[in-house]
């Protein structure tokens, strides 16, 4: 565990808290892509199946349970409790165009052809693109609430901080995992346009709105 890794995990935790806070306090999931949230739920369920087979540390186990629980909870809030506020007319990204190629790629490029390993690889690849329906929704409506922008910034920062963690681990521990690194780079690059808008607009007190 190094400072980048810890900061990344905390950023991820902050993102989850911000999203739940937004939905809970506004009693609405307007502006949030249910499709991205379904993809994230699939990501964490398929990645943390090793909760039952492999104990790393109490920290690791608690975080895994929080990530799986909160992603399933968010899907519940969006599709059950606050269903009426879900803006599905603007959430039109076709997730099968992500799920099928990602499933194919995880069967082709993985560390080991075993069930847990392929599901882990699938989850890493899927996470890298899971935000696309949300970014597509923001670009379609042309705006996002401030708290949704903060959520996206924290969520994007988490993998960017993991990249620094991997640089650190490569130099000081000789550890590197090409699958996680390539997927992490792709994931972070997808946020670049949003990061730019966040810094130039939201941090200056303006609402995140895209030019027409």
């Amino acid at each position: 565990m190094n400072i980048f890794r810890l900061a990344g995990d905390l950023s991820h935790l902050l993102a989850i808290i911000l999203l739940l806070l937004k939905i809970w306090t506004t009693r609405s999931c307007a502006g949030v892509s249910g499709k991205s949230q379904i993809l994230f739920a699939i990501v964490y369920v398929t990645r943390y199946l090793d909760l039952f087979s492999n104990f790393v540390s109490l920290y690791n186990t608690v975080m895994k349970i929080v990530f799986v629980g909160s992603s399933l909870g968010t899907v519940y809030l969006m599709y059950m409790k606050f269903k009426a506020t879900y803006d599905h007319n603007h959430d039109t990204f076709r997730i099968e165009f992500l799920l099928l190629p990602v499933a194919g790629l995880s069967l082709l490029i993985n560390h080991d052809f075993s069930v847990l390993e392929i599901l882990w690889t699938f989850s890493i690849y899927l996470e890298s693109v899971a935000i696309l329906p949300q970014l597509f929704m923001v670009s379609k409506t042309g705006e996002a609430e401030s708290i949704t922008s903060h959520y996206l910034f924290a969520l994007g920062s988490y993998r960017a901080l993991y990249l620094l963690n991997w640089v650190y681990r490569y130099y000081f521990e000789g550890f590197w995992d090409p699958i996680a690194i390539v997927a992490g780079v792709v994931q972070t690059v997808l946020y670049c346009d949003f990061f730019y808008l966040y810094v130039t607009k939201v941090l200056k007190g303006k609402k995140l709105s895209l030019p027409a």
Binding site: D9, S53, V56, K64, H111, D112, S114, E117, W120, Y162
Partner: peptide, 10 residues
């Protein structure tokens, strides 16, 4: 190799 048994990241 970063296998199932050695994965420590989230």
């Amino acid at each position: 190799r970063y296998s199932v048994l050695t994965k420590d990241e989230l």
